[in-house]
């Protein structure tokens, strides 16, 4: 056996791969479910908080800033663990899946709120004034004039952050969610062979490369036509 053969036998073992392929595929499904849920609920909540913040109600804004700063400073893993192992003491027992989803959604909410907020505040004051001077209300101005401009500015930082946090679904392993990494690592310990991990890596590439490419195209599409 050459070194190369041994390398292939260890990392790309056909028999092992075939055996654990269904597990990994299930992991892919779980990861996609988690990712979609996190992105949808995290971004929606982040946008909602940014819109609330634009109402400029002092005590409410302090609360929003506190929540956002809290979730931006805590490592996502800590939040997942606290939720999964801590909440049962408060008579709520979220599953590993739910803990991972909610934790990462909170983190994405916090980061995206800051990004949306930065976008809203960067729209020139004159845009508000022009719109209000024609009789549009605060809400109409926000939705028709300010937000469409703000969202364009937020697309690059938002896609980066979204991808980074969505990859955090791998942290679900810790609370027994069999997403890709979870499925791969248990397959690895069952088979004493790291080939499933290679499959997991491939699955991440297949999942996230298109997202990264799509993000880049979105960024280009929404760049200002000058």
């Amino acid at each position: 056996m050459t070194t190369w053969d041994r390398f292939v036998d260890t990392f790309f073992n056909g028999k092992v791969m075939l055996k654990y392929l269904p597990d990994i595929l299930w992991g892919v499904v779980v990861t996609i479910e988690l990712a979609v849920l996190i992105v949808l609920s995290g971004l929606a909540a982040g946008l909602a908080l940014a819109l609330l913040r634009s109402l400029a109600i002092r005590p409410l804004n302090w609360l929003i800033i506190f929540i956002v700063d809290l979730f931006r400073s805590l490592p996502p893993l800590v939040i997942i663990v606290l939720m999964y192992f801590g909440l049962p003491y408060a008579e709520v027992s979220p599953s590993g899946f739910v803990s991972t989803w909610l934790s990462l959604a909170f983190v994405l909410m916090a980061f995206s709120e800051e990004i949306f907020w930065a976008g809203i505040t960067s729209v020139h004051k004159g845009q508000w004034e022009a719109s209000r001077s024609t009789g549009l209300s605060f809400g109409q101005t926000l939705m028709n004039v300010v937000l469409p401009q703000a969202l364009r500015l937020t697309i690059p930082p938002l896609t980066n952050r979204t991808i980074a946090i969505t990859k955090g679904t791998a942290l679900g392993t810790v609370v027994a969610v069999s997403e890709i990494l979870g499925a791969a690592s248990s397959a690895m310990s069952n088979s004493y062979n790291p080939s499933p991990l290679m499959m997991g890596a491939a699955a991440y590439l297949v999942l996230f490369l298109p997202v990264v490419i799509l993000a880049r195209r979105l960024e280009r599409r929404f760049a200002w036509k000058k």
Binding site: H124, E129, R132, T134, G135
Partner: peptide, 15 residues
């Protein structure tokens, strides 16, 4: 405000 038009130094068109 509908009845009071306003034109600004910096145009403020919606880009």
């Amino acid at each position: 405000r509908q009845r009071i038009g306003m034109v600004f130094q910096s145009f403020n068109l919606y880009p």
